[in-house]
Design a protein around this nucleic acid. Structure first.
Lengths: 197, 197, 197, 197
DNA sequence: ACTAGCGGGACGACCCGTTTGT
DNA sequence: ACAAACGGGTCGTCCCGCTAGT
């Protein structure tokens, strides 16, 4: 289908540069140079830079969904902690540069822009995953709690970029525990997990 | 001191435009046009665009500190909720465009850049405020809890920009309650507030 | 001979686009896309864009000659009026965009360019037709009058593009009458035409 | 007012190049190089190339109006022949490249484009001048005759570009004589057709 | 101290005509 | 017939200096 090697090289190069340096800061010339393609080839696959940015966003979303799908194999509660652990691991990587969606949104102020809509869609998906897992795990208030988990997710993405990673990781684990803890009186099912991972 | 009306107009205009549209997306020419100053005047006060961005960051930090100082008059616990309520109110404003520091960081990937250092400093200040208030309110684990409040703060800034404001607000209040709740057994000083505002 | 269907489609498409939008404004990619041929096929039939432009000019000339040939069946005098009526009819068509040769000359300033030479040749042919018809109709000054008819032809082509068609048509008919009118004293052959068409 | 030397140099250079080589064929870079201005200066005075083209058209129109105004000092009939003689003289100049308006129209197919509207306005002015002079000279049919003079004008502009100048000049003079010749009473051969169509 | 304008040159996105391989 | 490569060209914007005038 879309199995053009040139297109793949362009998208991969763009993803790396856009994420590392920002969308506006990376020019087409640089992308085609590092991808080793001709200008005409680039514009054949992506009629405009915005189309490339859009494809970059869609690609990021697809990758995160694939990663999450793997975590979804476990039990609901474990899946949730696994997802957040995965994000923490990602956040401590050498190339980490924050959340690609939040960063892109910072450069695309117009909420009606296609890039923003792709971001919105991704966020709805992420919240949906949290909610579904909470429902499956029998959480009494999955909707509100999913919203809180989204807060936590965004906070950790920012934190790993701008604060000290170990502290962030510790705080994320503590916060997740607090959020997933049953409301005080309903502590029937003893929850014995004493350390994620 | 720096009470030049021209300089103030430049900074105010730049702050408005940088925040609303992003730093890279706003050119010097546009700033001087909308500020109604001459180019020479601009470069007299700000030797380079980066200097202006730096001043913009410092100015944002100063404003947030002034706002927080007002909230600090109340009791520690009240002060904390007031601070988060203020941020929620800010997040629902018509010109809201996310956290200026997070947005700027998205456009300045180099952690060694002066702009990033100003951001770091601001974040250290914010965390310090949270920690101090937690200490003053007798919280048993002020350091880790301050880290969690930072997560919450960043999450809400992102959420108000990219998600539905009412849901975010509700989630923030619930999360703050959870975070500030006394660990079950140690409920000496009964804090009976069951819902902010 | 040159009965390749691909070639014909290319030439037809190019003629339509060149005439409607100008030569420089239409790119090869657009032509091959709208003609539905491959790039290699295009460059097989037309080694360069200039060759295509040249073929476009030659084609236009051939078509005009074919049209004129039909009019030449009539009596000389009638043939002349028929030729100008044909041009007026052409000038009021929905796709009319002026004289293709004049338009092309506007984009090819160099008189030595092959395109220009094709234009020159076409104009010599047109003037020759006028002169021959004037001679055949017994006009006393066919050479100078042919030059005047060329002026009229060019004027009407411009007029139909840039002025109001009905006024132009009326003016063309009146001018043609004036031009073809016998000089006062030499009114031998009564000319009985009482209304073209 | 608009007495900026840089702007004047740009416009003068653009007029020369646009007229000699065509609008699309001349790039901004070339204009600013030959005018000796900076790109920023160019875009300060002309926000886009189209604005420059528009100014070029308006400038040409103004110049032709100024030239015509000088000829208008004479008696109506003399003024008309002077105007056409002026155009013939212009047409035989070394830099002659046809009518700037017709050439520009060839490159701007859209009749709604500002450039085209400037052209339309100029043509209305020219026809108005002819008509006024015909009225002042007591011509019995100034409106239709003005239309014919427009035909003649356009024809001569094209002819001087694409045909042999001396023949064109002769033909123009002869045609002008025919067009301005007093009707009826000064001629033996009555003109029987009193209204085409 | 402030304004207005101009010069400079690098870079932005995007399109051009053309050739080659498959 | 399609995809890719190529290099140069298009218009336009960038940040930044400098000079002259008030």
């Amino acid at each position: 289908m879309t199995a053009s090697p040139a297109r793949a090289r362009i998208l991969e190069t763009a993803a790396r540069l856009f994420y590392a340096e920002g969308v506006h800061a990376v020019g087409i010339d640089r992308i085609i140079a590092e991808a080793g393609v001709a200008k005409a080839t680039f514009y054949h696959h992506f009629p405009s830079k915005d189309d490339l940015v859009h494809a970059y966003m869609a690609d990021q979303s697809m990758r995160q969904r694939a990663t999450a799908t793997r975590a979804l194999a476990a039990e609901p509660r474990e899946a949730l902690t696994a997802i957040f652990e995965d994000m923490c691991t990602f956040g401590t990587g050498p190339t980490y540069r924050g959340c690609p969606f939040v960063n892109a949104a910072a450069e695309y102020p117009d909420p009606a822009h296609p890039v923003r809509q792709t971001i919105d869609e991704h966020r709805r998906w992420a919240r949906g995953v949290y909610r579904d897992l909470l429902v499956a795990s029998g959480h009494p208030d999955p909707d509100r709690t999913a919203d809180i988990l989204v807060l936590l997710k965004d906070g950790l993405f920012v934190g790993f970029e701008l604060d000290e990673a170990p502290n962030v990781r510790t705080a994320v684990r503590a916060a997740l525990d607090k959020v997933l803890a049953e409301p005080a009186h309903a502590t029937a099912s003893g929850r014995h997990r004493t350390g994620v991972r």
